[in-house]
């Protein structure tokens, strides 16, 4: 469950430009697509929801927690345990292999490292053959699937995806979105995708345009 109210945000450097964002209310397992042109503040909104940026005003509640009332270290912990992030070109930790990346994801979110679960997830995402592969040995599609794995392995409440499909072809785009929606459902998590990619619009029942 996510509920935002009257969020506004201003970058310190950018003079007086103030972002105002529409209120968002999502029930459990409800997904949302946020569309908008570049520079409109999509990523800013996503980072606000992830607790990476602090709003100038307004509240953001995930579950029943007002995330910006938490101390920085509490917020680190909360983010680690309840939020999963997917990026456009997914970066996993370069020096670790696929399995180690997932292990570190669990380690930092203070969850038990369960290899059965890791292997299961890699199986579902068709990455079983790449357990010991370094990140830079993976193709773009494989990387994006690893990104999805990293965003859901810790069973989060919210999955936030920033342009997850914009660098993928139609086939991979479809597959990635199916996997994301599927994984969100399995984890009973809210999925919020921000994009300017209209290909994925039909997959969401709820969408807002900034």
């Amino acid at each position: 469950m996510i509920k935002t109210k009257n969020i506004t945000f201003k970058y310190k450097k950018n003079g007086n430009h103030r972002f105002t964002f529409p209120d968002i209310t999502l029930k459990d397992e409800e997904n949302l697509l946020i569309l908008g042109k570049s520079g409109i503040g999509k990523t800013t909104l996503l980072h606000l929801l992830a607790g990476l940026l602090k709003p100038v005003s307004g509240t953001i509640a995930i579950g029943f927690v007002d995330i910006h009332s938490l101390s920085p270290s509490q917020l680190d912990t909360f983010r680690g345990q309840h939020i999963g992030l997917v990026f456009q070109k997914n970066h996993a930790i370069q020096s670790l292999n696929v399995t180690e990346n997932l292990e570190s994801r669990l380690f930092f979110s203070r969850k038990a490292i369960d290899h059965v679960m890791i292997n299961d997830l890699l199986e579902q995402l068709d990455l079983s053959d790449f357990k010991k592969s370094k990140v830079n040995e993976l193709s773009e599609g494989q990387l994006q699937r690893l990104g999805i794995a990293l965003s859901v392995i810790h069973n989060p409440q919210v999955i936030l995806a920033d342009e997850p499909t914009s660098s993928l072809d139609d086939e991979n785009c479809k597959m990635v979105m199916d996997l994301l929606i599927n994984q969100a459902k399995q984890n009973h998590a809210n999925l919020i995708v921000i994009t300017h990619d209209h290909r994925i619009k039909p997959l969401f029942s709820k969408a807002i345009t900034l």
């Binding site: 992830a50 990476l52 270290s73 680190d76 912990t77 983010r79 680690g80 345990q81 939020i83 992030l85 970066h91 996993a92 930790i93 370069q94 020096s95 570190s104 994801r105 930092f108 979110s109 203070r110 990293l150």
Partner: peptide, 18 residues
């Protein structure tokens, strides 16, 4: 060079201290 990795680790829940 690994600033992105480090930022990523922060989103994983790692603290600055870690």
């Amino acid at each position: 060079e690994h600033a992105f990795d480090l930022a990523l680790l922060r989103t994983y829940g790692a603290s600055n201290v870690q």
